[in-house]
Computed example of a mutant assay.
Amino acid sequence: MGTLSAWHWLIVLAAVLLLFGSAKLPQMARSLGQSARVLKAEARGLKDDEKAAAERDQDKPAAGKRGPQQVEDKQRDDPKT
């Protein structure tokens, strides 16, 4: 009862043809394909942006932490030591 047989699919296909007409279906399929391509390109762009941001964050020292050169400069400039 949970699966659709071939007859069910034929009835659904006939209903879609009656509702939208045979002329509109190729246009709708083309539009759906273009939308899928745009969505895929945007998702790929987001991944690339995240990857680039992660690489930039690895290159910079963390906020509040000093790199080794900065610590040496601070000790050299401090008159107390």
Rank of each mutant, 00 (worst) to 15 (best):
D48P: 00
P61G: 05
P79M: 04
A63F: 03
W9Y: 08
L18A: 14
L46A: 09
K24V: 11
W7L: 09
Q75R: 06
V38H: 04
V16M: 03
K60L: 12
K24Q: 13
D77Q: 09
L4I: 09
A41L: 10
R66Y: 01
Q34K: 13
L46D: 08
E50T: 14
P68L: 05
A6T: 12
V12F: 06
W7C: 01
D57P: 00
S35E: 15
L46T: 11
R56Q: 10
E72W: 07
D49W: 09
A23Y: 10
D77K: 02
D48W: 07
M1D: 10
G45S: 11
W7I: 03
S31M: 07
A36P: 00
R76P: 01
L10Y: 05
A62P: 05
A15F: 08
L17G: 15
A14S: 13
L17R: 07
K47M: 11
G67W: 01
A23M: 06
D77R: 03
A53V: 02
D48C: 05
A41T: 15
P68K: 01
W9S: 01
R44T: 03
K24D: 14
K51Q: 06
P26S: 07
S35W: 11
E50C: 05
Q27Y: 07
Q69V: 10
V71G: 02
K24L: 15
L32H: 06
L13R: 07
A29T: 06
M1F: 09
G21Y: 04
S5K: 02
L13M: 09
P79W: 00
